[in-house]
Amino acid sequence: MKRFFNSFSMDFLIAFRNKFILISIGLAILYAVLVNWVIPENISLEETSAYFYDNSSSKIFSQILKNSDNEHYFLNSKEELYDTLSKEKNQPGIIFEDSNFRIIAQGYEDEKTLNIIASQIDMIYLNLSDEYIPYETQTILIKGDSKNSLPFNKKMIPILLATDIILLGFMFSAVMLFQEKKEGGIYAYRVSSAGTINYLLSKTFVNSIIGVIFAFIFSFLTLGFTINYFQFFLIVFLATLLMSVLGILIGQFYDSVSNFVYVIMLAAGFIFIPLIPLFSGSQGNILYKLIPSYYILFGVEELITNGRMQNFLEPVLFLFIEIIIIFLITISITKKILIKR
């Protein structure tokens, strides 16, 4: 234990000297300013669902849609519609005729998406016909605590937090390693009795604590007392720990940062991938769940919105399993490559 604390305090000093802690605090404050005052609360990410042309004799469809809440893009002629479609390429077009309608798809849309659009348009025709039976689907709200969807600026918190603690953990631990390689600290380690496990634990723990400090400042300034900080710190700690171990595992094969930046960027690319399910509102398949940032993003978002216990245990468990596996691999490789070379 004493050996661990010795290396821990030494690594902490190095992190402090390298201004890692200062950068983290500075960024946390900057991010808080961004979330609180720069990023707007409401932003409409969903644009119009389609472009329309009303070819019916009564022009009733343009009247109906113009009176609805959503904004609709009506064009004056078929030619104009086709022109817009070939220019904008992001939405399909719809031509209203008297008794039926035609969808002009771009070509890349899947059938289900087109069917959803078609059902909504057909509903307008139904509304106008005699067959229509007014009907509103009933909703069953389960466990009705104070559950609201997050405003846009708050939705950025898990993203900014996860990308940063992950990258900081990954980068800082690797950079500490490079510095030891360069300054010869690693040679001293080879003849000391501290051992590989202490070596890894002290570095990763220092990073995890920096991660927690960053997360605390950022979340306290944006969310105040609204979240359970114990759960929050646990997830952040485990996430940074995982990324620090990964940083050391991969960093061993490099001697300097100049080539390692490519790995950092690749890691950053991977980290952003789980944003796809996060923004599209799905859980994503197993491929996504294998990426470490997945559980951090979803875990933190869950803590901010609902804080349901069952959803807290899953990320913690998965992060824990990932850490153990990667830690064991790192120990054996570090012994072979770094310490005993």
Partner: peptide, 19 residues
Amino acid sequence: SVLNYVNQDKSLNYEIESL
């Protein structure tokens, strides 16, 4: 809105053209 539509028990039928 899709459930509202499905509850009407109407089969979906529309013309489609792809660019």
